[in-house]
Write a protein that binds this DNA or RNA. Structure first.
Lengths: 243, 243
DNA sequence: CGGTAGCTTGATCGGTATCAAACCGTGTGG
DNA sequence: CCACACGGTTTGATACCGATCAAGCTACCG
């Protein structure tokens, strides 16, 4: 498991101009003290398919994604997999769980992360209570998103799930969104299926059906254009703000 | 919507001897300053079927359950319902969501709660950082539990869901648990179904099947005895620590 | 060019939902 | 004290959505 760019890895930590700073938790700390932050951060990078950590690993780090996309997932003993989230730039990774991580995390494309030791992070929160306040706010949002996903998995039909998924993606992905209504699906059909509690065949069929009905257009399997957002919203079931 | 015991409602706030103190977040505050806590708490009570708040209501209160059981749930426009959690003594209610609550909450039996205005609670957290620290820990646990439920809803069969549910209940319910392996189901089959993403008929059938297989014994629909925990654990899929 | 990973499409199967009816315990009013 | 009504539960028959099994298809890469 080698890192991505072995030549330019360390010491290039520049929180002030970090792409994810605007949205991230880090801006709880003012510019003057940001070197305190920089000194405890280790930037890491994982290529597509590489593991960041496994379910149950001791929680002694928190991560902040600065570029790329990854998935978090849980497995059953017989190999069934449930993806619990797709995380991207500015997202925090590693909040769920106290003793061990509640899920494993794997890179979907090349991912860059800031890695912070839990011990250091706790110290930082003690010095900057505003930081802890923001972490709690992030946790609240994630909790709300999880409830939304629980509703989806417990009570929505296949087409409703896919519609919710597309709208959910379009709400996020500030940089991944190509144009106003075009979005780039980085993940495979199998990933989408494991996120939505379906099979890849069903996901593919719903995409096909949406295309025929003019709800979406597909320029290749990974570029989707939402052509009828009101109807998709209707299918998704009204409010759909899964963070 | 009237309160339960109109005669002994107010002023009887005694955090020091609260039943939920041992487990609850409140003990982040030492005995000496506990009157600061008591002064901002309003004790409330709801009878079975009464609403505590609705999905989307402005989040300006947090609740701590001191007795009884309630359910949190989300609805789809056409009436489909998904219960996202059963909460009981010492649980915190109202963490999910920042602007509006992510779910509605309804009493299952007579529930007693401490109601704290968000504004006051924020002030308290500022004075007692340890309190905020505990809230974050609670949020982390809830997040882990939500992931577990997502796995259940996305990938488990009906019998695996029921097994997980029974084991999950037996892990909690410190006072509700009658004996070591007997538990009191306060909720109806319909509630269990809406929690597990099934119908009430399917839940009933799985209970029947478990009974026939000797995995459980039923003394009335609401008293269950777990007779073969290892096999139930196997069905649930190994680790099963849904908070 | 051939190999492979990911995607689409078709045919069939099966687990749960749905529809329907009976059962049970409890509370109520005659 | 009994008849009845009603909410909750169980049990049975059937239907259907999405899973499974099985080919092909496409694009990219060696």
């Amino acid at each position: 498991m080698r890192n991505c760019n072995l030549h330019d890895v360390p010491s290039l930590v520049d929180c002030r101009h970090c792409a994810s700073r605007a949205l991230a938790v880090c801006n709880a700390i003012d510019d003057a003290h940001i070197d305190a932050l920089e000194s405890i951060i280790t930037p890491i990078c994982r290529k597509a398919g590489q593991i960041i950590f496994e379910e149950g690993d001791r929680v002694d780090h928190v991560f902040n994604i600065t570029a790329g996309v990854l998935k978090t997932f849980k497995m059953l003993p017989d190999g069934r997999r449930q993806i619990t989230g797709f995380l991207m730039t500015a997202d925090i990774l590693g909040l769920a769980g106290r003793e061990g991580f509640a899920y494993g995390a794997e890179a979907i494309n090349e991912v860059h992360l800031c890695k912070i030791a839990r011990r250091d992070f706790d110290g930082l929160m003690r010095r900057y209570p505003e930081l802890e306040h923001r972490m709690l706010a992030v946790a609240r949002d994630e909790l709300a998103a999880a409830q939304e996903q629980i509703l989806l998995l417990g009570r929505k039909r296949a087409d409703e799930r896919v519609a919710s998924f597309l709208l959910g993606l379009s709400k996020r992905a500030p940089q991944r969104r190509l144009l106003s209504d075009r979005l780039d699906l980085v993940m495979t059909r199998a990933d989408i299926a494991d996120f939505l509690g379906l099979t890849l065949e069903t996901v593919s069929r719903v995409f096909g059906q949406f295309k025929k009905q003019g709800l979406i257009a597909l320029a290749g399997p990974h570029e989707v254009q939402l052509k009828n957002i009101p109807r998709l919203r209707e299918l998704a079931g009204g409010e759909t703000e899964p963070a």
